[in-house]
């Protein structure tokens, strides 16, 4: 289990940021890794007193605080209306309600975990991440950076006309995913995010214009095949590389078809 010498409920982001510059200190998210981590932490920094536990829906965007839980994402009417339910779908197979009442958006994203449904979903949403020190950057850029000592303050999802589809394959319903796949069309641009490869999620766009003529069974298949060729995968306990690459193709093709309004996919 993680050992902790000192617990501090931060009174300001600045205080939290300063404390977090010390190597042996750690920011607490949902704390779900408390038992499995063997870290010896000097000061555990808790952001739960900073009002970051709200989803604020404005005219143009959703502002999602770092301490918002996955359960809040699941239940938020505005977010789910905007994503046609894909937001709820991306989190509802994660362990159970109790877990999702604890796991935070900040914790889920900051670790850039390979298995993260949340990272996959926010990549497809083309979200923006606000860091305390580095400022605002795209989720794609954020995902590529290695975790540092900055603080994730909030995530912003801009409301642009879009369609979203989320899928995952799991060996049992509440297991970690064998593969995650989110597809979107925002402002006309297609995005495909694939995670649990098992490496962290990557984003693909329609660079080859395979979907430029619209979504048809053929173009969906072509894009699926393109994704399978392009997205690197590997094997672990939950699935081999070959199976994962097969799933990239299947889920991408189905996702794109559903995006085009075909609810029967392939």
């Amino acid at each position: 289990m993680m050992t902790i010498k000192q617990y501090v409920r931060a009174e300001s982001l600045e205080q939290a940021y300063q404390l977090n510059q010390v190597r042996a200190n750690r920011v607490l998210g949902g704390m779900l890794w408390l038992n499995t981590s063997k870290l010896a932490v000097n000061t555990a920094i808790d952001l739960s007193g900073l009002g970051l536990d709200q989803i604020e829906e404005g005219e143009d965007a959703f502002s999602i605080g770092a301490m918002v839980t996955l359960r809040q994402l699941e239940l938020h009417p505005g977010l789910n209306a905007y994503t046609q339910g894909a937001m709820a779908k991306s989190v509802q197979d994660i362990v159970g309600v109790q877990f999702r009442n604890m796991a935070t958006v900040g914790g889920s994203l900051f670790g850039r975990f390979g298995f993260s449904d949340v990272l996959t979903m926010f990549l497809a949403l083309d979200a923006q991440v606000e860091l305390y020190h580095a400022g605002t950057l795209s989720i794609q850029e954020f995902a590529q950076r290695t975790p540092d000592r900055d603080l994730l303050v909030r995530v912003v999802v801009r409301k642009r006309p879009g369609r979203f589809v989320y899928q995952s394959v799991r060996n049992t319903r509440t297991d970690l995913p064998t593969l995650t796949c989110a597809v979107s069309q925002v402002d006309g641009a297609y995005r495909l995010a694939v995670g649990a490869r098992p490496m962290k999620a990557v984003l693909l766009t329609d660079e080859e214009g395979l979907l430029a003529q619209g979504i048809t069974p053929e173009s969906a298949r072509a894009f699926g095949e393109y994704a399978a060729r392009t997205v690197p995968t590997s094997g672990n306990l939950r699935g081999s590389q070959a199976y994962r690459t097969h799933l990239v193709q299947v889920l991408t093709q189905r996702g794109i078809l559903e995006l085009g309004g075909d609810h029967h996919g392939a």
Binding site: T36, G96, N171, T172, R173, T174, D175, L176, L237
Partner: peptide, 16 residues
């Protein structure tokens, strides 16, 4: 052993 926890050793939940 690879399945050294309930994270890795998956017994059925009520959804399975």
């Amino acid at each position: 052993p690879m399945e050294d926890s309930f994270l890795q050793y998956k017994i059925p939940s009520r959804l399975d």
